[in-house]
């Protein structure tokens, strides 16, 4: 594989244990393009903030009527909300739900797209036409409008349910790209060889083709996460998800509906969740773009 061959050029890393050498080389290649490295650091920071920081920082969610919309201070670096609760504390506790839902939604939609995309491309004929027709219809309906109505109907009360709904809406674009990839792989010699050895459809899809689409799938998984965050934050902001508690998008919902948007003092209260969502999205996009450069030998140099 050229990817593996590319990993050991230039510098002698043979003395470092193999898995570590791969990691070192990966980081070295990521650091060649600052955008990708910034993205990686950003994503790692938010994952730490969402999953590790809540274990360290104690939860402060008691209502304090004496400190409503307090300005930023040493005790409350980003001020307080409409019930006098600390904003920074909510940012720390409010990322886990959103990121978990995004990961689940990306996982489900990628699975749907890979399964049906490769079936469509390898089987072809009527099955292909049917899958494509369904995909085209699903692509045409404005997704966010459909999502708003679906969320209002089903009121998804768990992250799992929300992730399933998000995944059911965002698979079509990915499916078409997986199908296109498989179509081009189908003509390659090694697939041809596997077919002439009569290795079976499942073997060809999962053992021959998927490993060759690994980088492609990883990048799409990240992009699917950004789509899921965009959509779930949107419906949470509209108040259509009966999830309570601390969550960046639900903070925005309360800030907007309690009128905090129109208070001069609550600038930092609103900036907290806005920046958290925006920077996490940007980190994901930049990580994807950095990974692309690493995976794509044509773009290196």
């Amino acid at each position: 594989m050229t990817a593996a061959a590319g990993l050991v050029d230039r510098r002698d890393v043979s003395r470092i244990p193999a898995p570590l050498a791969g990691l070192v080389e990966f980081l070295r290649m990521m650091s060649r393009k600052p955008v990708g490295l910034i993205g990686l650091i950003g994503v790692l920071f938010f994952l730490f903030l969402a999953y590790v920081a809540p274990l360290i920082v104690p939860l402060q969610d008691q209502v304090d009527v004496t400190a409503i919309y307090a300005k930023p201070s040493f005790a409350h670096p980003l001020g307080t909300d409409f019930q006098g609760r600390d904003v920074v504390n909510q940012i720390v506790y409010g990322g886990g739900d959103i990121i978990t839902t995004a990961i689940l939604a990306a996982l489900f939609s990628t699975l749907i797209a890979i399964t049906f995309g490769s079936i469509a491309a390898t089987v072809g004929g009527r099955i292909d036409a049917l899958i494509l027709a369904i995909t085209d219809v699903a692509l045409t309906i404005p997704q966010l409008i459909l999502l708003i109505v679906i969320a209002a109907i089903f009121r998804p009360a768990s992250f799992f349910a929300l992730a399933v709904i998000l995944a059911l809406l965002q698979w079509p674009a990915l499916l078409r790209q997986i199908r296109a990839q498989v179509l081009s792989l189908k003509e390659r010699d090694f697939v041809e060889a596997a077919r002439s050895l009569d290795l079976g459809l499942l073997h060809i899809i999962f053992r021959e083709m998927l490993p060759n689409m690994r980088s492609y799938i990883v990048i799409h998984f990240i992009i699917a996460m950004t789509l899921a965050i965009y959509a779930q934050a949107a419906i949470m902001f509209l108040g259509l998800v009966p999830l309570s508690g601390k969550n960046w998008a639900i903070m925005l919902y309360f800030a907007y509906n309690q009128g905090a948007l129109f208070f001069k003092d609550s600038f930092f209260y609103l900036m907290g969740p806005i920046m958290a969502i925006a920077l996490f999205q940007l980190s994901l996009v930049w990580l994807a773009s950095g990974l692309e450069d690493v995976f794509n030998p044509r773009l290196r140099s």
């Binding site: 594989m1 090694f190 060759n212 689409m213 980088s215 992009i223 994807a288 794509n296 030998p297």
Partner: peptide
């Protein structure tokens, strides 16, 4: 054999 090159960015 070559790893499939992903298209360039989202």
């Amino acid at each position: 054999m070559a790893t499939i090159t992903p298209a360039q960015g989202e």
